[in-house]
Amino acid sequence: MSRIQESVIIRTVVRIMVPFIELFALYVIMHGAGGPGGGFQGGVIFGAAIILYAMIYGIAEGKQKMSDALDRILASTGLTIYAGTGLLCLFFGGMFLQYGAVPLIPNDPATVSKYLIDLVEIGIGTTVAAIMISLFFDVSPPESEEGELPEELPDHEGVDG
């Protein structure tokens, strides 16, 4: 464990901050229709919260919060939500992703499309967050039993361009 991971201040601050970062990510995703933000940005912020937790508390503990299986399910779910919204519009007689065709509210296609755009943003955010977390776990070094970094890292000498 490195010195940063042992620091009480950093561990406490991360433990306090992570829920708020996640809440802010959800705000950014849901606020994408009305202001700056959107699925991609919010998804990256959500992924950053989990990555911050895994960096400080160790990869193994991070994987307890977000396991590989859950990660894969979430990544596929987000894409399914997006494509499913498009197919829903097909089902109600519109074109693919023609949100106004869904008769959620009669005679008000603009409002319907506003809600369905929110749904689509949620799908994008889910996929992006899950993929960001899985990228981090994939490139992280293999953990030993206690979830710590292995003692012998390969040497990084003689590499220069």
Binding site: G32, A33, G34, G35, P36, G38, L97, Y99, G100, A110, T111, V112, S113, K114, I117, V120, E121
Partner: peptide, 14 residues
């Protein structure tokens, strides 16, 4: 047409 005030989101998602 899209019901969202953010033009970038309307373009992106609609």
């Amino acid at each position: 047409e899209s019901g969202v005030p953010n033009i970038v989101t309307a373009l992106l998602a609609n």
